[in-house]
Amino acid sequence: MSVITLQVDGHDVAVPAGSTLLQAIQAAGLSVPTLCHLDGLDPVAACRLCLVEVEGSQRLLPACASEATEGQVIHTDTAQLQGYRRMAVELFFAEGNHVCAFCVANGDCELQDVAVAVGMDHSRFPYQDPQRSVDASHPRFSLDHNRCILCTRCVRVCDQIEGAHVWDVAERGSDCRIVAGLDQPWGEVDACTSCGKCVDVCPTGALFAKENTTAEKHPHPERAHQLRRAREQQQWIR
């Protein structure tokens, strides 16, 4: 296997050819915030939090979806990137209705973690207070659209790992929302196997099990990766 060497924030790292920049950053013992990325799912590069600067390139590159190339010099934490990340998180908070104190995922929410990491405690942008609903039609799980950040992890895990493709994104632009089936109540979509994977990977409190109340949701985002390894490489790593 050939190896690529590159520099991340001044550290030299070597990774197998074909690795992503995100893997290179992790190999260097560093991290960048991510929300839409999840090991085991195809990348979509939608949340734009993992953007990094690459010397010699004008464009910022999403670490989760860019292949590392030989000799790259990347910066993951410049003042410019910090500013952009903070604004992105503010935009997330302003476009939905996130009342953390009452959320099932309080304390175990990736959006909250990222907000803390980028130093955001309130959004400078006016909150848009959209009218969104809660779908509690499934016997075991619920979807609260108010907390959805459209990362599409649920769509991908259900399609790529479970193979049920219950979810998809409907509409476009700021009207986008996650739908089950033909925009039906989740409980009516018979393609759902109730496997719970979408709930496990949801980074926020949007998808949760009904028995969870405030701050009781404990997701398992690592399961997607474990399942994919098991299926594709016959390796069970739990």
Binding site: V44, A45, A46, C47, R48, M87, A88, L91, F92, A94, E95, I149, L150, V169, E171, R172, G173, S174, D175, C176
Partner: peptide
């Protein structure tokens, strides 16, 4: 906007 990424969808 297609709504895929946050800077464009919400920005």
């Amino acid at each position: 906007s297609c709504g895929k990424c946050v800077p464009c969808r919400a920005g």
